[in-house]
Nucleic acid binder design. Structure first.
Lengths: 215, 215
DNA sequence: TGGTGTGAACAACTTCACAGCG
DNA sequence: CGCTGTGAAGTTGTTCACACCA
C-alpha cells in the first residue's frame, strides 16, 4: 500500500499541517535525529499524535510499527507530496516596504520558491533594478512578462485598493495561484487558488483574546 | 437581548470572520452604503449568509428583520467586540527587512495598533532611530522597556532560530499575546495567545494545489 | 413582505482505542 | 513489546429551513 495516494477528500488543514511537519522534521534532521515516533513529533508540533498518523495515512504508509518514522525519509516524502521537489516561479506586484522585504527574504529560495519577476505602477520605480537582481516592470507588462518567464504563483503586496486589479492581471495571464498580502477578500474565478496572509486579522484575534481575558 | 453576550463557547474561526466582516463593512461605509443584508455581505466576503447571522448571534441581535443591518452601527459593534475601541501597544523583535516593513506599515496605526518599542541583538543597529521614530533597544532590555511602555502584544520578526528566545523574553516580561512571523512552532505556557503569520505554509498550500491540478 | 435569528440536520474534522505488525 | 494504521466514537463547525417580527 506504500506510496499509494487515496484521494478520498483530504482535509484542507491536513496540507497546512504537512507543511508544519516538514518544518519540524527539518529541524530534527539538523539535530541528527534519525527516527521519531508520532508522539514525539506531535509534542514538537503541538498537535495530537493520532492526527499526525491520520494525516500521513491519506498518502501512504511511511512508518514502521513499534519503531516510528525515519526522519529524512518522511521529510522527503512530505516534500514530494506538497510538490516541493521543484522550484516554483513567483511574480510580485507592489514594491513597497513589504514587497521589498519579501523579495529580500532568503527563506523563500531555501524552500524552493523564487521571485522571477517584480511589478509596480510607480514610474519612479519602473526600470530600476533591485539588490536581488530583478528589474521592476510596469504592471501593464505583467501578462507578457509572466508568460515569458513561466510564472506559476502570483504574489500581491499592494495596498488594499490596488489588490483586486493586480489579481485581475494575474488571472488574465493564466496564473493559477495567488498569495495575497493585501487586507481584502479577492474575487477570483473557479479553479484559482488564493491564500491570504493577513496580519490584521491575526492581530484582531489577539486583541479579542486579550479583551476577553481581562478581569 | 441586545448586546448581551452568550459566552457559550464561541468558535475560534468566528473571531477571524468578524475581522473580515469589519473590513468589508469599512469598505461599504466608505461607499456610503447605509444598510446591508446578510446575503449581500456574504457575497462580498465569500461566506455563507447563515454563517454571518450565526456569528453575529453569538454576541447579540444587531439586525432588523425584513431590512438588514445598519452598516456603521454593525461595524462599530464588531469593533467593540474585537476590542478595537482602544489603541493596542506592540513591541517588535527583529529589525530585519521584514521588521522594518512592519514598523513602516501604516495599516497598523489606522487599525488601532502601534509599535511603541523595537528590539534587535545586532550592536550595529542598537541605539539607532528608525524613520518612524522608535529607538532600537537591545533585546536584553526587553523586560524593562516592555514594562515601562506598557506593551500588550509582542511581535516576533526574527529568523526562526532566534524566535523561541524572543518568545521567552516576552513571556518573562508579562506580555500575554504574540504575533509570530518566524516559521517555527513556538512553545509557550498556558494562557499565552500566539498567532502565526506564516507565508511559507501558505505557499506550500499553493504548491500542493498546483501539483494536484496538473493533468 | 422580506430578511433576521435559530433549532435541528448535516458535514467536517479530531480524538480514542485497539487490532495488527515489525 | 511498542508504535503504527485505522474504524468507530466524539466533537466542532456549517448549512438548511422556517418561525417570527419590523
Amino acid at each position: 500500500m506504500r506510496s499509494i495516494m487515496k484521494f478520498s477528500k483530504i482535509p484542507a488543514v491536513t496540507i497546512t499541517r504537512l507543511s508544519i511537519y516538514s518544518r519540524c522534521l527539518e529541524a530534527l534532521a539538523q539535530e541528527d535525529v534519525k527516527i521519531i515516533a508520532s508522539d514525539k513529533l506531535a509534542q514538537k508540533c503541538g498537535i495530537n499524535p493520532a492526527q499526525i498518523r491520520k494525516d500521513l495515512a491519506y498518502f501512504g504508509e511511511f512508518g514502521i510499527r513499534g519503531v516510528g518514522y525515519f526522519v529524512k525519509e518522511l521529510l522527503s516524502e512530505i516534500q514530494r507530496i506538497l510538490g516541493l521537489n521543484k522550484t516554483w516561479k513567483m511574480a510580485l506586484v507592489g514594491i513597497g516596504n513589504l514587497g521589498l522585504a519579501l523579495v529580500a527574504h532568503e527563506n523563500f529560495v531555501r524552500q524552493g520558491y523564487e521571485f522571477v519577476a517584480v511589478f509596480d505602477v510607480d514610474p519612479a520605480k519602473v526600470g530600476r533594478r533591485l539588490p536581488s537582481g530583478q528589474i521592476i516592470h510596469h504592471v501593464d507588462d505583467l501578462d507578457k512578462v509572466v508568460k515569458e518567464k513561466g510564472v506559476e504563483i502570483g504574489v500581491i503586496a499592494t495596498p488594499a485598493g490596488k489588490a483586486q486589479n493586480a489579481a485581475h492581471r494575474f488571472i488574465g495571464s493564466g496564473v493559477k495561484a495567488i498569495l495575497n498580502f493585501a487586507p481584502i477578500q479577492l474575487q477570483v474565478p473557479e479553479g484559482m487558488a488564493v491564500e491570504n496572509v493577513d496580519f490584521t486579522v491575526k492581530l484582531d484575534n489577539l486583541a479579542y483574546h486579550l479583551t476577553m481575558a481581562e478581569p
